[in-house]
Design a binder for these strands. Structure first.
Lengths: 271, 271
DNA sequence: TTTAATGTCTCATATAATGAGACAATGAGT
DNA sequence: ACTCATTGTCTCATTATATGAGACATTAAA
């Protein structure tokens, strides 16, 4: 069975299609970067085996990617590869540029963290995932510090579900086409239908709640952010350790969160 | 004259060498990603002109990079290109994996921000740059929120200078080989020699200070973090708005900062 | 010591990259 | 409304590189 969606953490790479055709080397190289990021630190042979690619091809690409500064290896006699800082540096520029969102959100997020004491997350939709692009830390003593760049399947995080709930019907359909499961315990799996019901509730209330989301077992309450055309494209959430933020506490934060998300949406529409 | 180093913000890309030879398409594609990140949003022709590459080649690569999910364009009739969330997602994995550092640093950083009230930055050396990989926000009401992924030339930021000061003599030499300037005002440029003097002072005191660093005109005090072999590879800094953190305030924070950086170095050496 | 992996490299062949140029669509200037 | 420089897009003959099987030395484990 295809794993990956079950554990909530989003897959990075595009499907491992055959990739014959134009720009094949580029495609292979990028896939390599993505996979190395996922499996680092990893050896060349191991990588080739997992990708079902010839050893020589992988090796050649690894050397190229090292030359260009995207990958690096440790000094061992059997080198292990990992990604360099380059992708972060590149990604940082991306965040800075989606500044319409970031700038509009920052002051609101700062105010919200002072009101609530909790950490505030800003996520941006990327295909079927939502990526954490900014985090402002709560002033409480115990906090969760998720690294920027963490991404989740839209059906997992509270802000992701908020986005889903406000998606045009057609797009939601095609999202739900790929079967999606959520594992609560080892065997307890929530199927699609229940997610649909939850989305209806979310649309009515204007916010979503998630408890015990990996990788840090955090709990959160999230709301969607809309662009000028009324399309949900990002999410704002209040996130904290599961043992402090139980459903009751989360619900109490709802009004302030929803107001903040709306304020950001409005700020985005004024250009 | 070669700009770029003067404004403190680090260059992303490798040099625009001719790139003939093996893996050329991969090299071109990666350079494209880096440049688009730098200049986004940008059109295809403009990009081709700046890179001195044929329009057709650039166009083909842009389409490929879109297919693979690394670039995207707005819907306009003259599409403008920008980078997707993919690099951040990839980079996030990188950060998570340098977890030796991140994990070791987080609790210390959290403690430090509660002691001082200011924002704490963790930077990782990447070639001649230092990249912000984690930020923990101060509890004060006025704060600077630099995006993770921001990078500076080593000679600019306080933590970068701390790293430089503790570099083996040979490596420092080759770093200073490329002429480096710092612009204080439009015409006031600090040459190499003065930087050398400053590094001596930094080595003696164990910390460095920078005032008015772009892009947010922040001021900071920084100290180097060392690996098991005693090599500086990262930096810790206390950063805030220039108008609150003047040299006097920064100096007062030095003991706590230096202690925290040492604690992280020690934590890293215990594997 | 044996053995099964791994990293590295070479080379003939297949395949894709290359870039000049053509074209229509666009948008700025008048 | 009309001009005209510029843009995005595509084609195609030529050239250059990618490809991947296999060989080899090296390493780590049995």
């Amino acid at each position: 069975m295809d794993q990956g969606k079950q554990d909530g953490e989003a897959k990075l790479a595009t499907d491992d299609a055959d990739l014959r055709g134009p720009s094949r080397p580029v495609g292979l190289a990028l896939r390599l970067v993505e996979r190395v990021a996922e499996w680092q630190p990893i050896g060349a042979s191991d990588l080739a085996r997992r990708l079902a690619l010839p050893k020589a091809t992988v090796h050649r690409l690894l050397l190229a990617l090292e030359t260009f500064g995207w990958l690096e290896r440790d000094g061992g006699s059997r080198p292990l590869w990992s990604v360099s800082m380059r992708p972060i540096a590149v990604g940082g520029r991306a965040i800075e540029w989606k500044s319409g969102l970031r700038i509009a959100a920052l002051s609101v997020m700062d105010a919200l963290r002072h009101q609530t004491g909790e950490s505030i997350h800003l996520g941006l939709v990327d295909g079927e995932n939502i990526v954490l692009i900014e985090r402002i830390d709560g002033v409480n003593s115990v906090n969760i510090f998720l690294p920027v760049g963490t991404s989740w399947d839209l059906s997992w995080s509270s802000s992701g579900k908020s986005v889903l709930a406000h998606l045009p019907e057609g797009e939601l359909e095609s999202f739900l086409e790929t079967p999606r499961y959520r594992r609560k315990s080892e065997t307890d799996i929530i199927p699609v239908t229940e997610l649909r019901d939850e989305l209806t509730l979310i649309r009515d209330r204007g916010f979503a709640i998630s408890v015990g989301v990996p990788p840090a077992a955090s709990s959160s309450i999230g709301a969607a952010i809309f662009d000028k055309r009324g399309r949900p494209f990002a999410g704002l959430s209040i996130t904290g350790a599961s043992d402090r933020l139980r459903e009751e506490q989360l619900l109490a934060l709802a009004p302030q969160l929803v107001a903040a998300a709306r304020r950001i949406s409005i700020g985005m529409s004024m250009d």
